[in-house]
Design a protein around this nucleic acid. Structure first.
Length: 273
DNA sequence: CTCCAGGTTCTCG
DNA sequence: CGAGAACCTGGA
């Protein structure tokens, strides 16, 4: 869109990238509040720093091309919002969601992270992930996310000791299967086929699969139904997560994933504090 | 103390 | 196949 690559990284109008809205809606877990009010974000072995400079948002990084893709600058969010605005029930969520962007995260990191996310809360998820990264990382700074090979060296007991809880065996069983070939193949599969494929892995059910498809592969027809989205969408008719998913993913079509994030963020802010 | 968190797996009728 | 219970853990 209107972003530009500069000496220090990427700069774009503030309304095109709202830092808090993009980072605090549970799509990524490795972001950090810095003492000076800026935010740091880690993705794989890369990092960037975000802050506002007047009317602009600045993404400070040595890897501008990587983070331009990561922050999804190829998508025109004004068009998405315009298309979604025809759905009356989204009015308030859209009004509160300007500048929220869906990230293109690394598939391996996203898959591991969302397996950990099951029946868990964001704060604890972040703690577990940081302990996992620290185990393989250096002494100072933000540790890179470990590779499949590194994580495959851990035992069930290791995952448990890192605080993974009952997800320890999920990770132990599934991590070794997440090869580059496997993850690349998912990229090229149609939505429903990819979802079915991911659900074969231990620790991945429908919700986690859709999070992976949406937040790593940007398959935007995904509509992950978690406890928040279910609470927001349930009616006398739509009384199960499956029915809520069926109804809204059909209703929003290819924009379902965007709608889901606006609704999630809005409800998280309003109810969850 | 109980309840819940970006759910999935296991068990049983 | 569908419904219910069980599940690590830490904060409210």
């Amino acid at each position: 869109m209107n972003e530009r690559i500069t000496e220090r990284g990427i700069v774009c109008p503030r309304e095109e990238l709202n830092i808090e809205r993009t980072l605090k809606c549970g799509q990524l877990f490795r972001f950090f509040n810095n003492a000076d009010g800026t935010y740091s974000v880690a993705s794989g072995n890369k990092t960037c720093k975000l802050y506002y400079d007047g009317d602009n948002t600045v993404i400070e990084t040595d890897e501008p091309e990587y983070f331009a893709r990561y922050f999804d600058f190829e998508t025109d969010y004004s068009r998405i919002m315009a298309e979604l605005s025809e759905f009356g029930e989204l009015r308030e969520a859209l009004a509160c969601g300007g500048g929220l962007r869906i990230l293109r995260q690394q598939p391996f990191e996203a898959t591991v992270s969302f397996i950990i996310s099951a029946n868990n809360n964001i704060k604890r998820i972040q703690g577990i992930i940081e302990r996992i990264c620290a185990r393989f990382g250096g002494e100072s700074g933000i540790a890179p996310f470990p590779s499949r090979e590194e994580l495959s060296t851990l035992s069930v007991e290791d995952f448990s000791a890192l605080g993974c809880g009952f997800r320890d065996r999920y990770l132990y069983n599934t991590v070794p299967l997440l090869t580059r070939e496997y993850l690349d193949a998912i990229e090229n599969m149609p939505q429903e086929f990819a979802k079915k494929e991911l659900c074969k892995l231990m620790g991945i059910g429908p919700k986690v699969a859709e999070c992976i498809l949406l937040f790593a592969y940007k398959k935007t027809a995904s509509y992950p139904v978690d406890t928040w989205i279910f609470k927001a969408g349930k009616t006398a008719e739509l009384d199960t997560p499956e029915k809520v998913h069926e109804y809204y993913s059909r209703r929003y079509g290819e924009n379902a994933g965007y709608a889901q994030q606006y609704v999630f963020y809005y409800n998280q802010q309003r109810i969850g504090g």
